[in-house]
Design a protein around this nucleic acid. Structure first.
Lengths: 158, 158
DNA sequence: GCAAAGCGGACTAAAACAGTCCTGTTTACG
DNA sequence: CGTAAACAGGACTGTTTTAGTCCGCTTTGC
């Protein structure tokens, strides 16, 4: 199945939680709120931080806040932050990889049109769009409970 | 990296080769022409056959031909034939899978918009588009040589 | 009847992914 | 100025997915 990583899905949930305010929140807090395990939240936050999607504040009382406004964060941004470049085939424009027969490749560049179309589609939708009609994440959970992931924590596959 | 399967890429190469004529060709022949290993060609052809993208002729002298005109075969068709439904997240519209917290899922349905946009982008481009400016696949190779895959047979990853 | 060619499915090796953990650095605060 | 909170970076591991192969069966032309 043509799909995004589970971590990308988690990332969207985390960003949605972050979008609920502009205050700095610790990974611990976000983990509690979303049910996503602490180490996993930390890992994803690092990726999001490198991409500038979230800003970090180190030290005691530190944590993360959104790096820019929800309307300025696209689905494409999130995917790229977590998974790397969006390149449907390995030797596409945005990829650093190269096809061993690039010089004579009969389909050279043909995928780029598809790539651009997909990137455009993913750039259309922003975090703000995803957050619509989700004014709250539900009452703040205080104890451990099921992750409030988007599609995360699937029923056992198949 | 957000990408399609290697097999999907191979499939495109196979279809492109098939698009060069309407005659029935054996997997052996197509394997020789493209450099993709015989068992792999066979496997992909089975998937394409089930999806109706190619038609098969069993028995001696049999083989495969395109199931419909190149302009009627989209990239989305190929991806779906090889990888299954295009559903960026597991619990999306076209997926049979279900999220364990579907009833209360805060992002329920939000991904569908993204899904539809991506599907539309992938439906825009047809085999005929990909085949443009590739009148021949080069002189018919008669001995083993490098696969003439699109992006297949990459340089060692990374 | 025999050989060519596709069909269906099982199996294996390799790669990618998800998840965890550890060690170091930065910062608030008593 | 010492301690604890919190992020940074990266190594490591078990699991899942993917790619590739193989085998026995069926269909069909000659």
């Amino acid at each position: 199945m043509f799909k995004v990583n589970k971590l990308t899905d988690y990332a969207m949930v985390l960003l949605l939680e972050m979008a609920r305010g502009s205050t700095v929140r610790s990974t611990q807090h976000v983990s509690d709120r979303t049910g996503i395990p602490l180490p996993t939240v930390a890992k994803i936050m690092k990726s999001l931080g490198k991409a500038g999607l979230v800003q970090s504040q180190r030290g005691a009382g530190g944590g993360y806040a959104l790096g820019r406004r929800p309307i300025e964060i696209t689905v494409a941004d999130v995917i790229q932050a977590v998974e790397g470049p969006i390149a449907l085939t390995a030797c596409a424009e945005t990829s650093d990889e190269h096809c061993s027969i690039e010089a004579v490749c009969p389909v050279q560049g043909k995928w780029n049109r598809v790539n651009r179309a997909v990137r455009a589609a993913l750039t259309e939708v922003t975090l703000a769009d995803m957050a619509e009609d989700i004014p709250t994440f539900g009452p703040a959970p205080r104890a451990k409970e099921e992750p409030r992931a988007a599609t995360a924590l699937l029923a056992p596959v198949k």
